[in-house]
């Protein structure tokens, strides 16, 4: 790994509170090693701001390995930045060139109000799950795990859907700020397993209703969600959701 560095100009959305007005601030960040991650680059800026007595740029993050779904921002109009199949924390600065200007903004969606700078409130996702994104099984009441064999293809498809990290990039990337990819991933995961079939109808109805009531837009098949998803969740799950939803109506 070489000690190559690049110089960047950042235009970052700063907003003190939900109800405060926001604006872009420009920062020069020189000598960014290309081996560091995008968030480590923001750390470098924040270290400097803090030392100068200014408030650091607020952004969400935790695992920094692409699995907790906490991080995320629009970088030059792309959710999680330019690298496909990658969260912002997994994007490394070798993706960028010396002299680049990066415009960094929070997810923008009615259902995800900004809390501060790049931090948004995604609790709408939790509300959707709480209305049906589960199998109703009490602790202690489960049969032996091998009692219900599941064809490997179904288990694998369920796992593909279950890989969703709930980061919200799909909503941010969608021109209608729809949550269809997120909801369909959960519906499809459980609908592919015998354990999830029993409650399939109520689940899909409840989750879709809640999604609609929380201010997410409709799906118009723009497929931007799939392109932005760091876990590359396929829009085929949306088709599955639509089939499940249609059959739940009867």
């Amino acid at each position: 790994m070489g000690a190559k560095t690049i110089n960047l100009t950042l235009k970052i959305w700063r907003q003190k509170k939900s109800d405060a007005a926001g604006n872009f601030e420009t920062y020069d960040v020189p000598n960014v090693p290309t081996d560091v991650s995008f968030l480590e680059m923001l750390d470098m800026l924040n270290e400097r701001l803090e030392a100068e007595g200014q408030e650091p740029v607020a952004f969400d993050h935790d695992c920094r390995e692409g699995i907790c779904g906490m991080c995320g921002a629009m970088v030059n109009g792309q959710a999680h930045g330019p690298e496909s199949g990658s969260t912002l924390c997994q994007t490394h600065m070798r993706t960028f060139k010396d002299g680049d200007t990066l415009v960094i903004e929070p997810w923008s969606a009615n259902a995800f109000p900004v809390l501060k700078d790049l931090v948004v409130d995604r609790s709408a996702f939790d509300h959707i799950v709480a209305t049906g994104g589960y199998v109703s099984v009490r602790t202690g009441s489960a049969p032996d795990a091998n009692e219900i064999p599941i064809p490997k293809v179904d288990a694998d498809t369920a796992m593909d859907a279950a890989a969703c990290i709930g980061c919200g990039a799909c909503v941010a990337a969608c021109p209608n700020a729809s949550a269809m990819l997120f909801v369909s991933a959960k519906v499809s995961h459980l609908a592919h397993l015998p354990q999830g079939k029993v409650e399939a109808k109520e689940r899909v109805r409840a989750m879709v209703d809640t999604m609609d009531s929380l201010g997410f837009g409709n799906c118009s098949n723009a497929r931007e969600c799939e392109a932005a998803c760091p876990k590359e969740i396929s829009v085929e799950h949306i088709a599955k959701l639509n089939r499940e939803f249609a059959s739940a109506l009867f």
Binding site: P149, K152, A162, G196
Partner: peptide, 22 residues
Amino acid sequence: VNIIDQCAAQGVPFAREYGGLL
């Protein structure tokens, strides 16, 4: 042993063999 039963019942997509078992 109970943990695995519980998780499978919740729909945790554990890796499976071709025969469908864990």
